[in-house]
């Protein structure tokens, strides 16, 4: 018997977006990475194109964070003391790009200054040739105050700047536009909200190929199913031709997974949760791998071991082999 596999053909295509710029492209990165370009659902090569694997990045901070899991301190060790060392360690661990998050305050508890932010970003750019994302501390006024000088001091590098949310996107978008950077557009797990913010950002004059869409991630056990389904719906809409959803999706499973008790805490938890380290690593890996299947193009992770595991999986998913 011969079987006719039902294949879907779509009219839509996800936009290709390049993060980072090499010397020829007007920056200083040793390489840039391109994501997007899909004309089929995740890894269904038999009915469309999946030109690029998802980009796997590692999150670092401008200083050693105060409240990360002890397991992450163990994994990164001394490198966390200095963002340049941390970035080098992340590159050595196999990251495609570095996701640098600025802290609210410095080691002494003083609010982070623009001078400090610029200095850290420059230091990280020198320490590694990888493309870079620079993310504010998450408070509107301070984000704007820090990101504008960072964007100006790194003109042409095609950094990813964020996070743009409906209450605060104008300043970040304006400076990204003026200095040749990209932006991360985050909305809370809703197809229409995702589209609306993309429209607002695009209306300011930002080209579509410089916007990454962040649909918001929930950790395994803490709402992953909402993110998963919103991503599936966004990707289907994109393939069916809805232009404002045709953007690569960025997700932050590292941050979400390491926030929850299952990953963070080793003591005073139910015995049935098993070995802490295995559980914590599993938590991040499963959160990330599940989102790969729902269409994530860019994933931000925290533990180097997770990066290796997810890398092995996406390598396999991108193999040019006959399967049917």
């Amino acid at each position: 018997m011969t079987i006719d596999i039902p294949k879907e053909t779509y009219s839509g295509r996800v936009i290709e977006i390049t993060l980072g710029a090499t010397a020829e492209e007007g920056g200083t990165r040793s390489r840039s990475i391109t994501v997007g370009g899909e004309t089929a659902l995740p890894y269904l090569h038999f009915e469309g194109e999946i030109p690029h694997p998802p980009a796997l990045g590692l999150e670092i901070r401008d200083r050693k964070p105060d409240d990360w899991s002890p397991l992450l301190y163990q994994a990164w060790g001394e490198a966390m003391q200095d963002p340049a060392d941390w970035a080098r360690a992340a590159e050595a661990a196999g990251a495609d790009f570095i996701y640098l998050v600025l802290s609210l305050t410095d080691e002494e508890g003083q609010t982070t200054t623009p001078e400090r932010a610029v200095a850290v970003v420059k230091k990280v750019l020198e320490a590694t040739g990888l493309p870079l994302a620079v993310i504010g501390p998450g408070q509107a006024d301070l984000d704007n105050e820090l990101l504008v000088p960072v964007a100006e001091a790194t003109k042409g590098e095609r950094l990813l700047l964020g996070i743009c949310e409906d209450k605060n996107y104008r300043t970040i978008v304006a400076t990204a536009m003026a200095n040749g950077h990209l932006v991360e557009s985050r909305t809370p797990m809703d197809v229409n909200l995702a589209k609306q913010l993309v429209i607002l950002i695009h209306d300011m004059g930002m080209p579509m190929d410089r916007i990454l869409m962040d649909p918001t991630t929930g950790a395994l056990g803490y709402g992953i199913e909402y993110g998963y389904s919103v991503m599936e719906r966004l990707r289907l809409a994109a393939l069916q031709g809805d232009a404002m959803t045709q953007l690569p999706m960025i997700v932050t499973p590292g941050e979400e997974a390491w926030k929850v008790k299952e990953a963070k805490v080793g003591e005073g938890v139910p015995e049935t949760w098993g070995d802490w380290e295995r559980r914590a690593l599993t938590w991040e890996a499963l959160t990330a791998s599940t989102l790969v299947h729902s269409g994530a193009d860019v994933l931000v992770l925290r533990h180097p071991e997770t990066l290796k595991r997810v890398r092995a999986m996406v390598d396999n998913l991108m193999q040019p082999v006959e399967t049917l």
């Binding site: 949760w273 098993g274 802490w276 295995r278």
Partner: peptide, 12 residues
Amino acid sequence: FDQAELYALLVL
């Protein structure tokens, strides 16, 4: 059979 991994799969 590993409790930590099984727990994660069951939650998923």
